[in-house]
Simulated scan of single mutants.
Amino acid sequence: MAHPQNPDGWGTPPQPPHGHKKESFVKRHPVATVFIALAVVLGAVIIGSAVLVSSDGDGGGGQERKSPKPQEPSKEKTETPSTPPPGNERKDLTSFTLDDRSQAGFDDFWLTYEVTNKSSEKSDYLIEYDVVDTRTGKRVFNSELIEDSVKPGQTAKGEEPVLVEEGTPFRNLKVEVTDFNRTASF
């Protein structure tokens, strides 16, 4: 049925009766209003959290913090008799071997180690090593191990997988310690 003012049927919409007020969005859609309010609050929380995380809470605008340089030991410091002379710390590495745990034709090689703190102070250890193929003399794997806060007389034991090319015979592998460092633990 065409509207009397427009032959195509389109015209001005009918007006509400006199004295009738148009309802607000909030009254017409109370559930949607609640979800919109929650979305605004959640967005504010997320943005606030992102700002705090990016500035690290120090107001630095996300700038990197630089860690203080470690203090170098005083050259005037004398060694106590209970501390082994420098270079002797390698003796703390009491076991360092490759272990073949291969099964059902799948290579599974592991490095096992033991470090015994023979000094008079709590120590941290950093051990770097290479696994070498004795046929070619080439390094096929390298890694480093870290042991923290080993007390005097305590033994730290550990293991880690050694990943080499599949089919490399275990009998041709040799492990070499390339660097060993013991430092005082704080």
Rank of each mutant, 00 (worst) to 15 (best):
P70D: 08
E144D: 14
V132D: 00
I46A: 13
G59T: 05
S67H: 07
V53S: 10
A44G: 15
D100G: 09
E166D: 14
F141G: 01
E72H: 09
F109T: 11
G137N: 04
Y113L: 06
A50D: 07
D100C: 09
S120C: 00
D107F: 09
K157T: 14
E144H: 14
P86N: 06
S49G: 10
D133G: 05
V132W: 05
R171F: 00
V51E: 04
D99N: 15
P84Q: 09
V40C: 08
P169S: 14
T168P: 06
T83N: 01
R139E: 04
E159L: 08
V41R: 03
F170L: 13
E64I: 05
V164W: 14
G59W: 12
G62D: 03
K151A: 15
R65L: 03
D92F: 14
S49P: 01
I47D: 01
Q154G: 15
R90D: 07
R101N: 11
F106L: 08
S102K: 13
V53C: 08
D130A: 00
W110V: 06
D56G: 09
S149P: 01
L163T: 08
D100P: 07
P161M: 09
Q71Y: 06
G48N: 09
K69N: 06
R171P: 03
K157H: 14
T97H: 04
E165D: 14
G60I: 02
K75I: 12
G158A: 12
D92C: 14
G60C: 07
F170E: 08
F106G: 05
G167S: 13
Y129T: 05
V150M: 07
S119H: 08
K75V: 14
K66W: 02
K151G: 13
V45Q: 01
T168G: 12
T168F: 12
Y129D: 02
Q63R: 13
G48D: 03
D108T: 12
